[in-house]
């Protein structure tokens, strides 16, 4: 029975990473209709940015939790502005191919400079240790990951479903031409959406950095992203800027 609870908890923790990743995928797919193959690569980039911040600038975990997603998000917006933008109006499969190429580039560059062995990133002091739940020992950091992911998911939901910006976003998903006619800058919103999706992936990357010491793009995380892509397509989330297939 104890083993079962432990397994359930591990599932919950992994699930919270997956939730952040698939949320980003769903937001991008809903708005751009692109399956973002580079999602695994930007997830890894999030962890790397946190590592750089700590080792080059001495910036710790807490600021990195905000800075890394923003940095990677801006990188994502740059990609959208310079490349993905030119594919609008073409078959959506070209978007898949382009992001696949980007994934190869990002993955290859990092692998060349840092190898595949993984880099160390320690848990912040405030979240070290653990507590005894009676049936199992819960490391505090893992509990924090679950709670924090849940908050971020709720915030994203609120942003898209309850704010004015979110309303524009959903409207632009339904009918971009009409929304543009109302004076809303739809291309800029598309760029922001891509940045948001990529930023969510990077956030998951930062969260995972202290857990997987070997977070450098292991084969499993790659597969996880693929599985999430299929899930996003199967479920076709209708609330989160989803669209009918």
């Amino acid at each position: 029975m104890q083993a079962l609870y432990a397994q359930l908890l591990v599932g919950l923790i992994n699930g919270s990473f997956y939730a952040l990743l698939s949320l980003g995928l769903a937001v991008i797919f809903g708005m751009l209709n692109i399956i973002n193959f580079a999602h695994g690569a930007v997830y890894m980039m999030g962890a790397f940015v946190a590592y750089f911040l700590l080792n080059l600038a001495g910036i710790g975990y807490w600021p990195a939790l905000i800075i890394a997603p923003v940095v990677v998000g801006i990188f994502g917006m740059f990609l959208e502005r310079t490349m993905l933008k030119w594919l609008s109006g073409l078959d959506h499969l070209y978007g898949l191919l382009l992001t696949f190429g980007l994934a190869l580039i990002i993955q290859g560059v990092f692998q060349n400079y840092f190898g595949s062995s993984g880099l160390p990133y320690s848990i912040p002091d405030e979240l070290k240790g653990g507590m005894n739940l009676g049936f199992m020992f819960l490391p505090i950091y893992r509990g924090w990951v679950v709670v924090f992911s849940l908050i971020v998911c709720l915030l994203t939901w609120y942003l898209i479903e309850r704010t004015r910006l979110g309303a524009y976003l959903r409207a632009a998903t339904e009918n971009p031409t009409l929304v543009r006619a109302f004076g809303v800058n739809v291309p800029r919103m598309i760029t922001l959406t891509y940045g948001l999706g990529v930023g969510l992936a990077a956030l998951a990357g930062v969260l995972s950095a202290p857990i997987n010491q070997k977070y450098f793009y292991p084969e499993a995380s790659n597969t996880v992203v693929f599985v999430l892509m299929v899930l996003v397509l199967l479920v076709k989330p209708s609330g989160l800027t989803g669209r009918a297939a």
Partner: peptide
Amino acid sequence: FGQWVTVIQGVIFVVCVLTFR
């Protein structure tokens, strides 16, 4: 070039999709 072949392939992918469809 070892691992850089992956990067070169990625670049070819991107260039092909953007300009050389």
